[in-house]
Computed example of a mutant assay.
Amino acid sequence: MSDLMNFGYEGKAAVITGSSKGIGRETAEQMVKLGAKVMLVARGETALKEAADELSQYGEVAYIAQDITEAGAGETIVEAVIKAFGRLDILVNNAGSSFAENFEDVELSDWEQDIDLKVMSAVKMSKAALPHLKKQGGAVLNLTAVMGKTPQPNSLPTTVSRSAGLALTKAMSKDLGKYNLRVNAVCIGLIRSDQIEKRWQKQAPDLSWEEFSARSGEKIPLGRIGNTAEAANVITFLCSDLASYVSGTAVNIDGGSGHAW
């Protein structure tokens, strides 16, 4: 049983984009508690520093304030990781946003910004990290969305970007497996976030979170909104040694609401 529960994070270094809050922050906490050294990445330095200060009680944490869509951002972040920890084993491409409109209402600039943030930033980060990940094998985890598998009306451009993220994950897993490098994705459904919190306070401030979650989750088989720890649990597993024979897959974290495997 002890071998089964060895996640294998001790001595490893991870970089997580979009990790000052939400799923990225929760994932960082779990990995640090399991022995990993973690580089937090986000645009806002204040929130990053607060997260790093909190997580440092559990282990070794560093941070870098960086817009990952900027030219050379991937190289800058990877250099910071190597300088801080001397190695890089795990990359979690978590940075993203939610932008969904009707096709007619989406401007070309919106398409460019969305694809740059959700697809090209993952490509750039992965390319920059690859020379280090290849040295000892490792894991890349791309966060996408359930809607990327089954796009719905008024869901552009985000569903297209997320679908591209799924294709990127599968193709990378085929090309990089020869280095013992695993590439997986998680497809996020309705998870408690700043955006959901604001919706709760605006639409139903008289309801408790449990009541709002149940009402919002009426069409979700599990009957509620998920939380960040539940998403981080799956990500932490997929990046661990316990998932050493899992690659090229995309796991739904959606309470059963998705319409595809």
Rank of each mutant, 00 (worst) to 15 (best):
M1Q: 09
F7H: 03
G8F: 04
G8R: 09
G8S: 08
Y9M: 12
K12L: 10
A14S: 12
I16W: 01
G18C: 03
K21C: 01
G22D: 03
V32K: 05
L34S: 12
L34N: 12
G35F: 06
M39H: 02
A42L: 02
A42K: 01
A52W: 06
D53T: 09
E54I: 15
S56D: 10
G59E: 03
G59A: 08
A62Q: 13
Y63N: 07
I64W: 03
T69H: 07
T69A: 10
A71F: 06
A71H: 08
G72P: 14
A73D: 01
A73H: 00
G74F: 04
E75F: 03
E75I: 04
E75W: 05
E75G: 07
T76F: 00
A80Y: 01
G86Y: 15
G86I: 10
R87F: 01
D89A: 10
L91V: 15
L91T: 04
L91C: 06
N93R: 15
G96R: 04
S97H: 12
A100D: 05
E101Q: 02
E101L: 00
F103D: 05
E104L: 07
L108H: 10
S109W: 00
Q113N: 12
Q113H: 11
D114M: 15
A128I: 13
A128P: 08
A129F: 03
L133Y: 00
K134L: 00
K135V: 07
G137K: 13
G137M: 14
G137F: 14
G137Y: 14
G138W: 09
A139G: 02
V140M: 15
L143F: 07
Q152W: 02
L156V: 13
T159S: 14
A167F: 15
T169P: 11
K170T: 09
A171I: 03
K174Y: 15
D175G: 06
G177C: 13
V183Q: 07
V183W: 02
G189K: 02
G189N: 04
L190E: 01
I191E: 00
Q195A: 10
E197F: 06
E197H: 09
A204L: 06
A204K: 12
D206S: 14
D206T: 14
L207N: 04
W209Y: 10
W209I: 06
F212H: 05
S213H: 12
G217E: 00
P221R: 06
R224E: 00
I225G: 02
G226V: 08
E230V: 05
F237G: 04
L238K: 09
S240P: 14
D241T: 00
A243E: 00
S244N: 10
V251H: 03
N252H: 08
I253N: 04
I253S: 04
D254M: 11
D254S: 09
G258W: 12
G258R: 14
G258V: 10
